[in-house]
Nucleic acid binder design. Sequence first.
RNA 1: GGUUCCGUAGCUCAGUUGGAUAGAGCAACAGCCUUCUAAGCUGUGGGCCACUGGUUCGAAUCCAGUCGGAAUCACCA
Length: 613
Amino acid sequence: MAIRVFYFTYFPYFCILFSITNMLELKISHCVAEAVSQLYAIKMEAKNITLQKTRKEFEGDFTVAVFPFVKASRKAPETTASEIGNFIKTNLDEVEDFNVIKGFLNLQISKTYWINFINSNNIDNFGFKEIKDTNPVLVEYSSPNTNKPLHLGHIRNNLLGWSVAEILKANGKQVVKVNLVNDRGIHICKSMLAWQKWGNGETPETSGLKGDHLAGKYYVLFDKYYRAEITEMIANGIEKEVAEKQSSLIKEAQDMLRKWEAKDKATIDLWEKMNGWVYKGFDETYKRLGVDFDKIYYESNTYLLGKRIVDKGLTDNILIKKEDNSVWADLTADGLDEKLLLRGDGTSVYMTQDLGTAELRFNDYQASQMIYVVGNEQNYHFDVLKLILKKLGYSWADSIYHLSYGMVELPAGKMKSREGTVVDADDLISEMETTAYEKALELGKIDDFESEEAKQLYYTIAMGALKYFILKVDPQKNMMFNPSESIDFNGHTGPFIQYTHARIKSLLRKADWKVNCDLNENISFLTKEKEIIRIIHEYPSIIMQAGENRSPALIANYAFELAKEYNGFYQEIPVFKEENEDLKNFRLVLSAFTANVLKSAMGLLGIQVPERM
RNA sequence: GGUUCCGUAGCUCAGUUGGAUAGAGCAACAGCCUUCUAAGCUGUGGGCCACUGGUUCGAAUCCAGUCGGAAUCACCA
C-alpha cells in the first residue's frame, strides 16, 4: 500500500505520513483537533479524538461526541457541537454538512467523496497493503501429535493459524507458516507398542483406515489394556500410583522410548512406518481444511535442543542446579513458580525443547515476530517461556506472542480423547458435506449443475459453514459446539455470505455488464446504497484491526454486516428496472464492489465463494 | 489455596481504544416468490449486560470486592 504525503491547506505544518486506509477518519480527527484549538484554545491530539460511525437512526456518516470540549468552550454541548461543525464544514471539503443532537456532532460526507472513493478503489486487492520485504513474522499452528487423528479442537487451531497468517499478509507482513510436529515421545511409543502386540500387521491398506485413525486406534487400545492391568493390580492390593508406574505395559513403552533414543534399528523402522501412515492421513485432512505450511519442524530433530541454552544460563548464574543435579529457573520474584528445565539425569522437558526451538526458528528466519497459535491451557507455559528467554538475555524474547485461543466445548463439557467424546475432524467435514448435499437437493439448487460442479459446491458450502462457525467467534473465548444441532446454513453463517456473493455474480452475468467505473457524479444515491459504500469504505481499517488483534472474527463479522446490508438493498432496489443508465451502472458497480470485498474477506478466512449456488 | 481468563435475550454469539434508546442469528409467531437466485427480505415478542460499590459530564466497556464457570500451578506434551 502506497504511503501518501498529504497536508492540510489551512494548517500547512500538518504534513503527515500515513496510510491511505483510514485517511478520511484521520483528516476529520485532525480537523476537530484544529477546531478546538482555534475555537477554545485547547490542545488535543488528533489520535485522542474518538470518531465513531454515526448510528443508523441518525443522519450522518461520522460522529464526534463533544462532551470532552464543553469545559473549555464554556458553552452548552449543542452550541459547542455546532461551532465545531461549522468549522469543519468550512475547512474540510469532504464534509458537506452536519447536524447536532444533544452533544453529538454528526458529520455528513459529500457525495463527491464517496463517488471518488468507488471510482479509485474498486480493485481486487482493495484494503490490502503491499508486502514489504522485511524480516518475516512466523506463525506456528497445528502442531499435532502423531498418535491420534485431528479433532475439532485442532480444527479451530488450524483455521485460526492459517487465517491469522493471511490477515498479516494483507497487512503487508512477510509471513512464514510453521508447523512443529510432535512425532516422538512416550505417547507415540504407546501406539507403536500396541500395534506391535495386537496389530497383526494391520496397515491402512488392509484395514481401510486412514493412517492417522489407525495409529489412534492403537493408542486407544494401549490405554484400554493399560487401565485393565492397573485395575487388576489394584485388586491385588497395589496402590494406584504405584500400579501406574509399575505396570508392565508402561515399562515396555518406556523401554521402547529408550530404544528409540538409542536409535535401535527395528524401533526406528516401526516408528518411521507408523508415522508415515499418520502423515499421509494428516496431509489429507490439511488438504480438506485448506491449510498449508511453509516449514515443518519435527520434534524428533529438535527435542535435544535447548540444553545448550540451559547450560549457558547455569554458567551465567541465571539458572540454578539442585543437589539431585536437576536444573531450575527461579521465577518466584516475578510471581511465578520454579520451573524445571533439566531432569536430574540430564534429560530435557517440554520447556527446554521450546527454548531450543524458539532460538532455532529465530536464527532460521531472523523473525521480527514469532506467533504461537496454542490453546489457552498453555498460557502459563508461554508466560514462563518468554520470561526465561528474557532472563537469559535474548533480545527477541519480546517478539514471542502467544495467540491463545479458547477451548471448543461440547454440551457435555471438554472433549476427551480417551472417553471417546471427541468430534473427529474428518468425520465432521464429511458430515458437513452430506448436510450441504441434502440441503441443496431439498432446495432444488443443483438441478442444472454438472455432477462435478455440484460436488465442488457441497464442499465449498460445507467448509464455508464450518469455517465461518468457528472463525466468527473471538479467538480468546471458549466456544460451544453442539453436535446434535448441526451447523446452520441460514442466518449469521458462511453460506449466507456465499449466497450473497453468488447472487451478485448472477446479477452481473445477467446484466452482460461492461465495467464502467467512471461513475457519473450527478447521480444521487439512496440511504441503503450509501450505507453499503460506507461499510465497504471501512474494510481497510477492519483488516488493520484484525491484524493488530490477530482476530479473524473481526473479518467474519464484518463480512456478515456487509452481506446483510447488501441483501436489504437487493430486496428493495431493483437494478434492471432502473431506466437511468447512470444509476443502473452505479448499482452494478456497487454490487460488483460488494462481491469483491465479500470474496476478499472470506478469502482471509479461507472460505471460497461460489459463482452460483 | 495462588495466578490467569470468562459471565450480554431461551440458545449461539457481536458490541476495538468509555458515548445517543445494548445488537445480530437461531428458536417462536405474522407477512413477502406471474418482478435481478426465498440458502433471501420485512415485522412482533424476548435484557437488572452475574451482583455490589467506585472513577466521570457519561460505564456492558475502566478500578475494587462478591458470587458463578473454565484453565493452569507435572521431573506429561
